[in-house]
């Protein structure tokens, strides 16, 4: 087995680990980590493929990986910002289990919203109550951390 094939196999195994993590873990940060492992495994495969030729190293996969690394960090950064905002709005660090739980969430929201509709005529976007709650929790926390600092 050549060095390139060896690393290609390692890349395959890393892909497996990444997929496994993405499916089994529910914490948002873990999922982002798993996506990053998955990404680097694909990059490793490309780098290994570039190394196969006896007489030269292929620069095209290298350029692809360089592009891919920057794209990966961009997507990771945005996903993390989104996760933070989601956490601030809901207090959760994982997504609702599946569609059912979101549907289970919907009627309550609907009722609250239709009541609000009647009262104000406008109707705040769904989820506003949760958001307020999250914001309050946040400010509590701030107070705590401020006290800690003093």
């Amino acid at each position: 087995m050549s060095q390139a094939a060896f690393y290609a196999l390692v890349a395959g195994a890393l892909t497996g680990i990444g997929i496994y993590g993405l499916i089994t873990q529910r914490h948002l940060l873990r999922r982002v980590l798993a996506v990053n492992i998955l990404g680097s495994s694909v990059f490793l495969l490309l780098v290994a493929l570039a190394r196969r030729h006896p007489d030269y190293v292929d620069p095209v996969p290298h350029a692809m990986v360089l592009t891919g690394i920057v794209i990966a960090v961009s997507a990771t950064a945005f996903a993390l910002v989104l996760a933070r905002r989601y956490h601030a709005a809901t207090g959760l660090t994982h997504l609702p289990e599946d569609e059912e739980s979101e549907e289970a969430l919907a009627p309550g929201l609907l009722n609250r919203r239709s009541l609000a509709d009647r009262r104000s005529g406008g109707g705040p976007p769904p989820g506003q109550p949760e958001r307020r709650q999250g914001a309050r929790r946040r400010s509590d926390e701030d107070r705590r951390s401020d006290e800690g600092a003093q």
Binding site: L82, R85, Y86, A89, T90, L95, L109, P125, P126, E130
Partner: peptide, 8 residues
Amino acid sequence: AADRAALS
């Protein structure tokens, strides 16, 4: 919209 449903 940045509410709970949209963010999730």
